[in-house]
């Protein structure tokens, strides 16, 4: 237990360093763009006074180090500045739009793990057989198209041609739910509306599945290759020599060791989901961070761009810490690090 705590503490420290690096990187990108950020943000018709006032509020007249100091100080206080696009604090905007995206990403992540890992395990268990070949081709196909192509195909097939799922939105239009956490699945339960919960879930499934398809493929391919490697280990032959069924060997003796190298990479795939959510939200008119993100990018809304990237990166890093914890739970070598060293 103690070593898990120290592993997490160590990981948090690295995360802080990386997040610090992200802030420098984003800050630099935002400052090296050609032209006056204030002028770009306000557009060519703004007066010189307006631009000067904005330069003052953005601290653009100070040296770049001072600017960065302001930026970090504000960030640590949870202040990401005012969005020039919505005229509201960036933090407020993100708090409004991010939950819908996270809800999508979390369900997609669930699909990725709950479908991808078993598919990979089946392929490894029947390696070289027809199931393996079929899974290989299917997973290679799913990773070969961006999420928006899958979204288009799925929406045509399962919303238009066979109306199994809603075409767009988060919940049926006749149901109105007071936003508390802004996670629709949670808010409907808080409101005690089971019908609302089911409707929200119904709306969530197709976009989440479209988003998860390439992740499912990645996870399955990764699991297969790691598990095939595990199958060459002496402890699998040992399990065979004890007459355990192939099924039991796959599910108990080979799968768990193969997860250790897989999980870390699956954490990275989770990051890809956060980015790809931008592609899926567009098609399903999902009120998440995507429309806001693309909007602020097109408006050259500096504060909002920097803030959004910082928050998304922080979310991703947190997800990776969770993955590391899971790896520690599965891998006794990490749990008992102090004895083995």
């Amino acid at each position: 237990m103690k070593s898990i705590v120290s592993a997490v503490a160590k990981r948090l420290a690295t995360t802080a360093i990386v997040l610090f690096g992200v802030s420098i990187l984003i800050f630099l990108i935002a400052r090296i763009i050609p032209g006056d950020p204030a002028r770009i943000a306000l557009g060519p018709r703004a007066t010189v006074e307006q631009v000067e006032r904005m330069r003052e509020t953005l601290h653009l007249n100070d040296s770049i180090f001072v600017q960065y100091g302001y930026f970090v100080g504000d960030f640590l206080r949870g202040d990401l500045g005012i969005s020039l696009y919505t005229n509201r604090p960036v933090m407020t905007d993100i708090a409004q739009f991010l939950p819908a995206t996270l809800e999508l990403v979390l369900l997609a992540g669930f699909f990725m793990v709950s479908i991808g890992l078993p598919l990979g395990a089946i392929a490894a268990r029947y390696r070289g057989g027809w199931a393996d070949h079929t899974i290989r081709i299917i997973t290679l196909l799913t990773v070969s198209a961006p999420a928006f192509v899958w979204a288009v195909i799925l929406v045509l097939l399962f919303s238009y041609y066979t109306p199994l799922f809603p075409i767009a939105g988060r919940i049926h239009e006749t149901i109105s739910i007071a936003p508390v956490t802004r996670f629709m699945l949670i808010d409907t339960l808080i409101a005690g509306r089971l019908d609302g919960f089911l409707s929200a879930l119904h709306h969530l499934i197709l976009p989440a599945f479209a988003l998860s398809l390439s992740g499912i493929g990645q996870a399955a391919r990764l699991t297969r290759s790691n598990m095939v490697e595990v199958y060459t280990q002496p402890y699998i032959e040992m399990a065979q020599s004890y007459g355990f069924s192939e099924r039991r060997i796959a599910s108990k003796f080979a799968f768990k060791p193969s997860l250790i190298p897989s999980l870390t990479i699956i954490g990275l795939d989770f990051a890809a989901l956060l980015g790809n959510a931008f592609l899926v939200e567009n098609i399903f008119a999902w009120p998440g961070i995507s429309r806001y993100g693309v909007g602020v990018i097109l408006q050259k809304d500096l504060n909002a761009i920097v803030g959004t990237v910082m928050i998304i990166s922080a979310t991703f890093l947190i997800a990776n810490i969770v993955v590391d914890l899971l790896v520690a739970v599965i891998n006794p070598r990490i749990r008992y690090a102090e004895q083995s060293d």
Binding site: P234, Y235, M238, Q240, S241, Y242, G243, I260, P332, R333
Partner: peptide, 25 residues
Amino acid sequence: RGELRGTELSMIFQDPTTALNPVYT
């Protein structure tokens, strides 16, 4: 054949450390 293994027949391997599963006690 599988029924016999682990009950009437068993085997000891060359390298004990790699023959035991690393993720179970």
